[in-house]
Structures are given as C-alpha cells and as structure tokens.
Simulated scan of single mutants.
Amino acid sequence: MSRWIKNFILRMLCFFVSVFYRMNRKKIFFRAYNGLRYACNPRAISEKMHEMDPDMEIVWSLNDVNDVAEIPDYVRIVKKKSFAEYRELFTSKFWVLNAGIMIPCKRKGQIYMDTWHGDRAFKNVDKTSDGSSLLSEAYKCADVILSGSDYGDEIIRRSLNPYAEILRCGSPRNDVFFQDYTHKADSVRKALNLEGFDKILTYAPTFRGNGVAADMLDFSYLADELEKRDGKKWGILIRQHHKVKMLPEWKTDSRIVDASKYPEMQDLLLISDVVISDYSSLVGDYVLLNRPVVLYVPDLDDYKSSRGLNFDVEKSPFKYAKNAKDLFQTIIDFNESDAPENCKQILDFYGHVCETGHASEQACQWILDRV
C-alpha cells in the first residue's frame, strides 16, 4: 500500500474519531520503539506521571498485548494498528513516543512529545535520495522533543524536526542513575541469575542493517583473563539488538548470559562494571555512571561509508578497538580508576550534557502545565 493511501486512511480515521469521540485532556497515549515493549523514556515518564497525577489516564500501545509482565495495573493496553489504538490515539490530548510516528495529522489541540531514544547517537539518520531525513515525516507532527546536550539539539534540528520546541531536560530513562539503585540492581541480578558473579561485563552491539548478529568473540577467554587479573568471578551479558538473533555458540559457557529479551536496557547498565558496544547511543548513557566503556568497531571503515556516523570515532575521547585482540587487551589493561576522567571527557565532547536525574519530572511538568 502506498504512503499516500495510508495517509488518506489515517486522515479519515482521525476525522471519524473526531466526529464521534471527545478528546480527553487528562489522557496520554504512550508508545516505545513502535510498540515493541514497555520501556525507555516513555516508560519513565509514564510511571512518573502516575506518581505526580494519579488521575491522568495512561494508555500504552504494544505489538503484543499479552506481554504485560512489568506493566502496572493503572495502564490501559491496546494493540498496535487496531481500531482501539487509533481511537485512543485521536482522543488523547497528549502523545508520548520515542521513535516518531507515521501519522499525517493530529486533532486540533493535541500535543505530541517525542523523547527520541538516542540523544547522543552515533549513527546518521537515513536519508532519502533528495537528501532529506527519512525520519522527518515521522517527526513532522512533534510539538516538543527532549534533548540532553548541545549534540542532541543539533541532531534534532538537522534530522528530526527543525521547528519543534526542544526541552533540555535529559533522558528520563537515565533518572535511575542518579537515585539509590542498590535494591534495583539486586533485583536485576536476581532476575538474570547473576547473583554468583562479583563483576559483570555487558556486550551490547547495535543493529547493522543486514539482520545478522555482531562478530563472534571469545568471551570465555576474556572472562578467564579478567578472573586471573583480579581474582573475582566475572559474568558476561550479551544484549543483542532486537532485530538480530543470539548466536548459539555464546550459550556454551555458563558465565555467558543472553539478556537480549530483558525489557529495560538501563537496568543492565546499572549492574555492569564494564560495557562493550559499538555505534549505540547507550554508551552516552553509560558514561553517566563513570565506569569503563570500550567500542568494538572492526567494521568502522565500512560502516562510515555505508551508514555514516555523526562524528569521527577515531578522533573522539572514546576508547576503541578494531580487532578482538586489541579489544581484550584494552579491557584487561584498563585501570578502573581512570574511568571517571574518560567519562568526563566523553560528556564534555557532547557539549553541556544536562542529565540531573529529574528529566521525567520535568517532562511530566511540561505536560501538566498544558492540561
């Protein structure tokens, strides 16, 4: 079905709902990662909103309406692309999303907040043949977009929406990093059966566009070397992107745990003592914890030419390696006491990072001021 036909149908749905249903100024429609899961910045705002105003109606759109393990009872769930979803969408005064929405219109008076999911993103936003952003259509209805840095502001203006208001509050999903998360970390370790490990290393590569997993690495060897180094038992978490499958070879060592289906990435960062990633914006979040992070980028040259990056990794403050030998040696030799200074350099690189632990509250207050 062509985009023109889809937009026509959506406009008719909006018109139909507008005629037969009133808009509710005390209702918020939430969706994260296009309905993938109850997670990320929208989840943090949803939970904070219920805390600040329990009378606010909260609706979530999900691909799988049976995936409700961590969803509170006060949340109403609708299936994505159902009539119920469009009814809730066009009767909610507020929308809170994190990946844009391919909707050509809103009702008069509706307000759309997008939190994005990569304020400190590496990857270029895909472009059309005429050089315009493929995400520009998904963000053209946005009234306000959350940012946490000068760098984030630039990405929003260049690739998402040059006219939307920018709310400089940081990423709500990162608020947990500024709280006492001891109990939270213990519960995450228990949920993943990691209580027997002293230290955790997480490998979380991003999606490369071809649907295959990232390079196979000998994490058993790395765990052995780390245990020799400090005499502590290391567990390895593998967090693959949701569009790729876990490599079965990684499951042969009991110290290696597949955390790909765990719903909240920030929980995994909380319990990680070291993180390996590549071009994922999660490293821009993780450095807030002042812990070691290393980029594994064996395909850096190909990635730069095919997908494109927003900055030159080799000229940035990030520690990186282009092959497994250098990666493992960098991690084994890394002095944890040097991590805070390296993390500060990375945050300074992004420019005026404004993560304070109050992003959810600020986003909610912005909404409540407009009820």
Rank of each mutant, 00 (worst) to 15 (best):
M23V: 14
D153I: 09
A259L: 03
Y296Q: 03
D369K: 15
V294D: 00
R22S: 15
S132F: 08
V212W: 11
V313H: 03
D258Q: 03
N310R: 00
P263E: 04
I256V: 14
R255W: 02
Y33C: 10
N7W: 13
P72S: 05
D299F: 09
G308Y: 00
H117E: 08
Q365I: 01
V244S: 05
L167H: 07
R43F: 10
K261Q: 14
A191C: 06
D186G: 12
T91W: 09
G35N: 01
E314M: 14
E57C: 04
L270R: 03
S254A: 14
D180P: 04
V68L: 13
V371E: 13
Q240A: 13
S187D: 13
I155N: 00
A84F: 06
I155G: 00
I238M: 15
T128W: 11
N342I: 11
R229Q: 08
H358V: 04
F349A: 00
I28W: 06
M1K: 07
Q266G: 01
V212N: 14
K93M: 13
L194D: 01
D67L: 05
L269A: 03
D338G: 00
Y38M: 02
S360L: 09
S61M: 03
F8M: 12
V75K: 09
V96C: 15
V212K: 15
L10E: 07
L146N: 10
K315I: 01
N161W: 06
G109C: 08
L347N: 01
K232N: 13
R25N: 14
D312W: 00
G100I: 07
L226A: 10
L300W: 06
W60R: 10
V287L: 05
E264T: 09
G109V: 08
G109P: 07
N290Y: 10
E154V: 11
C14Y: 03
S305W: 08
K48H: 08
D64T: 09
F15M: 10
V78P: 00
R370W: 12
L247W: 01
R189G: 03
L300S: 07
W116R: 07
L222D: 03
Q365Y: 01
L134F: 12
R168W: 13
E47H: 10
R168V: 11
V275Y: 05
V176N: 08
N63S: 12
I45E: 06
K325M: 10
F207G: 03
R43P: 11
E361M: 11
D253Y: 05
Y181F: 14
I155W: 00
Y203P: 04
